[in-house]
């Protein structure tokens, strides 16, 4: 059964937002700060230690003839420029003046009011006789990366090495047979608890004969034992990361009404960033998350994506001796 989502005619053609120039403290930024392909402003890549204000020149276009043919005069339209930064709860909007299907404006923001990334988008509305504006079309958003490269390094010292299990997972040895919540899976070698509040928890089953010995730091007694140990490390890492990323992806939502992408917070966001940027390094994590959410809801290509994710995890899993040592050390402490 079809369902009417918009009880009025929407614009068929596109509402296009272009960013034509960026100025930092009044000085023109190099043109490569604007990545038109990925619709991203790479302000953090400018490597300016200090700056105060960014100005972004915006041009907007839409097919005015389509609306005129439908008897919608330009005077009955309004165009809203939106600037949002989730990290700082900043939401600034401005109405742009329209002229023959075009509009221009400059969006200014203070560095002290934004963090991480921000989003620029436009909404074209037609105002009805009841004076309520209705959405004719939304533009595709631009993302602006703001955070300076020097900042996050001290912000999250847990990430000692990329893809290290112990940076993300709270590793604990338990005898599954005597642990209440783990009894039903007493024969499993490990279990990933993604519902623990601060970090996902990786339980290793010390009730399985010689499992702890296999994963110990002691020198392997044979090449076969060493090979088995490496295999098990890799299997553990793959299983743990896959459970974490699938859980994090389940928290990604696209709002039906607004089309807004809702990403999880805390460690779930961190795991998404790590994995999705490995999966599609050429584009921002948000774009990949949106594509996966769409594939999941449409059932179109989601299985392929999961396969690709496994490859991405394999690529970043660190199976070096350093990782093994830290894994065991962490496990023994708990």
């Amino acid at each position: 059964m079809s369902q009417m989502i918009f009880p009025f005619e929407r614009l068929f053609g596109d509402l296009v937002v272009n960013i034509t120039a960026v100025r930092i403290d009044g000085q023109a930024a190099p043109d490569d700060v604007i990545d038109r392909e990925s619709r991203t402003l790479l302000i953090q890549a400018l490597k300016r230690e200090t700056w105060a204000v960014a100005d972004i020149d915006v041009e907007v276009e839409f097919p005015i003839q389509e609306l005129l043919n439908r008897g919608v005069p330009e005077s009955g339209l309004s165009l809203l420029l939106q600037f949002e930064c989730d990290a700082t709860d900043l939401r600034a909007t401005e109405r742009l003046a329209l002229r023959e299907g075009k509009a221009q404006g400059t969006l200014s923001f203070s560095r002290d009011l934004v963090a991480e990334r921000a989003r620029v988008a436009c909404v074209l509305c037609a105002t009805g006789t009841d004076r309520i504006p209705r959405i004719l079309k939304e533009s595709r958003p631009w993302n602006s990366r703001i955070q300076e490269a020097s900042e996050p390094t001290r912000e999250r010292p847990r990430r000692r090495s990329r893809g290290s299990l112990t940076d993300f997972f709270d590793v604990r040895w338990r005898d599954f047979l005597v642990e209440d919540g783990l009894k039903p899976i007493a024969k499993e070698l490990y279990f990933v608890d993604v519902d623990s509040p601060d970090r996902p928890r990786l339980y290793l089953n010390e009730g399985i004969d010689k499992y702890r010995t296999l994963l110990s730091e002691k020198r392997a007694t044979s090449l076969e034992e060493q090979a088995l140990r490496d295999l098990e490390y890799r299997r553990l890492a793959l299983g743990a990361w896959f459970a974490a990323v699938i859980h994090a992806l389940n928290s990604v939502q696209v709002e039906e009404d607004s089309g807004d992408l809702l990403l999880p917070e805390d460690w779930r966001r961190d795991v998404l960033k790590l994995m999705l940027e490995q999966l599609r390094p050429q584009q921002p994590m948000e774009v990949t998350a949106r594509e996966i959410a769409r594939a999941r809801s449409d059932g179109d290509g989601y299985g392929t994506t999961l396969g690709e994710l496994q490859v991405a995890i394999n690529q970043i899993v660190d199976t070096t001796a350093v990782m093994r040592r830290s894994l065991m050390t962490m496990g023994q402490e708990n």
Partner: peptide, 10 residues
């Protein structure tokens, strides 16, 4: 639309 607030960002 009713309450544009562009000054909020600056």
């Amino acid at each position: 639309n009713a309450c544009p607030n562009y000054a909020e960002s600056i």
